[in-house]
Structures are given as structure tokens and as C-alpha cells.
Simulated scan of single mutants.
Amino acid sequence: MNADAIRIERPSTNSKLFAHTRWDVLPAAGGLFHLAYLFGLYFLFPRAPLWVMLILGFVYSLMVNANINGVGHNFIHNPFFRSKLLNRLFGITQSMACCFSQTMYDAVHMQHHKGNSDRQDQNRETIDWLSIYRHGHEGEVENPWSYVFLSFFRDDVGAIRKELRKRNNDDLFWGNFELAAFATTLLVMAIIVPANPIHFINWRFVLFFLPFWYLGHCFSYLNGYYRHYGANPDKPIAWGVSSYGKIYNWLFFYNGYHADRKASARSSARTCSASSIPICRNGVNGIARR
């Protein structure tokens, strides 16, 4: 690929709070709003009619998708804050809002960049745990229905922890802490009914919330599927698929520039610009677009 085909401009800032750009206040605020929205669902549930809660629950599912693929993805590649502690605390809020571990998501996503939705090898394995070819047959991609609705149950927490342990830092501790944080949050919500007077065993809220939590992650897998469907895992220039629609990129904090980032970063996962959106000029020939 021509070295001049892509020129990346990375914003810099003298902010004492933000590490890359003051614009990161927007995805950071979006992540915190998502957490506040979750608590809002919890407190509103005993007071609002079911039809209202069903609409709000569906919106929560959409927000899980936007958070994981927008805020969370940007945060992996370019942690928003200069302070390591603030980044850890924000990771906890992300974990509680989406009901997963942001640090473990980091490990899964870095594994994704190592394989870039690669095809199965001779042992029917893929480097990328999220590869759309991982559970396919005869070298073809998996059916989107099974990928979207079964991937939620396929995460191998043991393999993720093993990968975090290799980093020889405190990521494994924080990954486990984030799991405990969101599990504790759900447990409290399942036990305490925030009514007047307060009473206990909030089983109705649990039955309401769990399907929307699952649906939100299904939406995220649907997003990931079509970020790679139609791409060519054998050609680095076409590892992903991009979407340039303004509304999509505004809602997902420019996650649509997916193939462009991979083409610019090539095999170096940590150099991908996500929080600091790359400005690609002169085009990238051969990138699959949607």
C-alpha cells in the first residue's frame, strides 16, 4: 500500500484532565448517561406502566450497542483521561452500564485485532475469538442469526483471564473487580424494590431487565457481524467494512470508520485511533464500504 495513501491527524490537547482531546467529554458523558439511564429504569419500574417500561427497556438495549461499539471501543484504543485512576473508575462505570467487564472487553478486542475476523486454520480455530468465520462451515462465514443470538453465550472467561494475566499488570484484578461491580449492582437491584415503603425480592424487575440486557449485546454482535461481512480477511487493506453515514457515526462516535482505521494501523492494534478520530484524506483504495 502506498505510504502516502492515508495521512492521519491526531488531535492533541494541553488539558490536565483529558489525554487526547477535550472532545472526549462527549463519549465520557455518553457513558455516564448510560449508567444513569440504567438506574433510572430501576427506580422507574415500580411506578411506570409496563408499556412505557418496554419502550424504555428497548432503548436501553440500543444504548448497550452504541456504548460498546462507540464509547467502550474508543476508550480501549485511547483511554480518555490522563489519570490512570480516572480511567479505571470510568471502566467500572462502563462495566456497570453494559453489565460486562470493560477490561475483559479490551482483551477480547485486542484478540480481535490480532486475527481481524480470520478464517479457521487446519484445527478449525481462529485467532480472533469474535471472527464471523469461527463457527462457520467449509470456510464460510457463520449464519448471522446464530452469530448474533449465540455469541453472548460463547465468551470464554477463562481464556480472557489467561490473556489478561499475560500482561503482567493489574488488568486481571480490575477485570475481576468490574465483573464483581456489575454483578453486585444487579444483585442489589434484584433484592431491593425501590418503592415506598421499600420491600424486597425484585423478581419482576429481573424478568423485565434480563431480556433487554441480552438483546443489547445481541445488537452489539449484529453490529460487529456487519462490520466484517463482505470484507476480505486475507487482504489487510480490506479487513473491515466502513459506514460513512453521518447519523450512524454521530451516534456511535465515528465507529463507522472501521476499515479506515485498520488500514492505517495495519497490524498494530494499539495505534488505531478511535477516540481521536482519524481524518483520512486522498481515500483508501480497495476498502469495502457500506
Rank of each mutant, 00 (worst) to 15 (best):
G158H: 13
I192F: 09
A195Y: 13
N176C: 12
A159H: 12
W239P: 00
S242M: 08
H258G: 07
W250C: 06
P233L: 05
E163C: 04
I191W: 07
L207Q: 03
W213L: 13
Y226M: 11
H228I: 10
Y214T: 11
A181M: 10
L186V: 13
I198G: 01
G230S: 11
G158T: 14
A181T: 07
N176G: 09
A190N: 02
I237G: 03
P233A: 09
D234G: 05
N168P: 00
N223E: 08
Y229P: 01
E163R: 07
N168Y: 08
S264Q: 06
I201H: 01
E163V: 08
L207C: 09
L164P: 00
G245W: 09
L215K: 08
W174P: 00
G158P: 01
P211K: 14
F173L: 15
N168F: 10
I198H: 06
I192Q: 01
N232A: 11
V188Q: 00
K166Q: 14
W203Y: 11
I201R: 00
R261M: 12
N232C: 07
F253N: 12
G240P: 03
I198R: 03
G256D: 04
I160E: 04
N232H: 13
V193C: 06
A159W: 12
N223K: 07
F177I: 07
W239Y: 15
D170T: 15
V188D: 00
T185K: 01
F173S: 14
I191V: 15
A159R: 12
P211M: 14
D171I: 15
A183L: 15
F209G: 03
R165C: 06
Y254S: 02
W239I: 04
F200P: 01
F208R: 03
L215R: 06
A263W: 06
F173A: 11
F173R: 09
E163L: 11
V206A: 04
E178Q: 14
Y257T: 10
W239C: 01
L222Y: 13
A180L: 05
L222E: 04
F253M: 12
R167M: 13
N169T: 15
G175P: 00
G224R: 09
V241I: 15
L172D: 02
Y225D: 04
L186G: 05
W174D: 01
A259E: 14
F200N: 01
L251W: 10
M189T: 13
A259K: 09
G175T: 10
F173M: 11
Y254C: 08
Y248H: 08
Y221G: 00
Y254L: 05
W203F: 11
F205G: 02
A195Q: 12
I201P: 00
Y214I: 15
D170E: 15
W250S: 10
D171T: 15
W174E: 09
N249G: 04
K262H: 08
A231H: 06
K166G: 10
P233E: 03
Y229F: 06
Y214R: 10
D234W: 08
F219C: 03
P233D: 10
L186N: 05
T184A: 14
A259Y: 11
A265K: 00
N196A: 12
L187H: 03
A181G: 04
W174F: 15
A238N: 10
L186Q: 02
L164C: 10
H217F: 07
V193W: 05
F173Y: 15
